[in-house]
Design a protein around this nucleic acid. Structure first.
Lengths: 113, 113
DNA sequence: CAAATATATTCAAATATAATAATATTTTTA
DNA sequence: TAAAAATATTATTATATTTGAATATATTTG
């Protein structure tokens, strides 16, 4: 079982527009580097850098097919995470009833609020 | 409905050990700054900075109670996200059957694999 | 085997993020 | 109203991330 600490490190790797876009596409299926070039408006070396970062962190992997390098999704947290990112939340969480007590605070004075 | 772009920005804000710890505690209930000082091993000003960042991004909010400032969770994505981070995944995603076709690649030559 | 194609690597520059240190603000209490 | 308590702000320094440019590698094709 991966520790929360490890998962936060993973989160930092995923929290980037380009890498999220890459992962969204990989959720649909295998893609080679030049497939990514079609929709990512960044240079090929930069795409390779992002792919390499994701791979080093075990998020994706690849196999070679001729001179194409075919990337696919490996870490099962990715679809779940993307689902949460895309989920439509209607309301904010309810504000706490006034005034619950913090650990510190059974506040002694007259409270102004 | 928040765009995926906006959500990735949010993800970047959340992807930090201290801030995740803060949010885990806020899931349990309202906390004032000195409550956080008890378990976060960082300076009070630094705690305030993290809280301020989270608030600027609409993740949390606060009310004042005397001289205590009581923070609470506001964005409903947080519990869902923490649940995914803590979820226990047994296996990797299945590697794709050999060899699905990338957009680019109905590869013409003899494939080495 | 040379040229072409697909992709990767490395280094440096630019930028963003985080922590520290010092100080300020606000509210309460004596 | 001065001191204490709780928290915030600002500027500076340190560190990490991101991109760009140039170049390298691997594989296939002719």
């Amino acid at each position: 079982m991966r520790s929360i600490h490890h998962r936060v490190d993973l989160l930092r790797v995923l929290a980037h527009h380009v890498r999220i876009h890459i992962l969204e596409e990989l959720c649909k299926g295998v893609k080679c580097v030049s497939d990514f070039e079609e929709f990512l408006q960044i240079s090929q070396p930069n795409i390779s850098q992002h792919l390499n970062l994701l791979r080093r962190h075990g998020v994706i992997d690849y196999y070679n097919d001729g001179r194409l390098r075919c990337y696919f999704l490996k870490d099962p947290i990715v679809p779940d995470l993307l689902a949460v990112l895309k989920k439509n939340y209607i309301e904010e969480l309810p504000a706490p009833a006034c005034c619950p007590v913090t650990k510190k605070g059974k506040y002694p004075g007259n409270r102004r609020h």
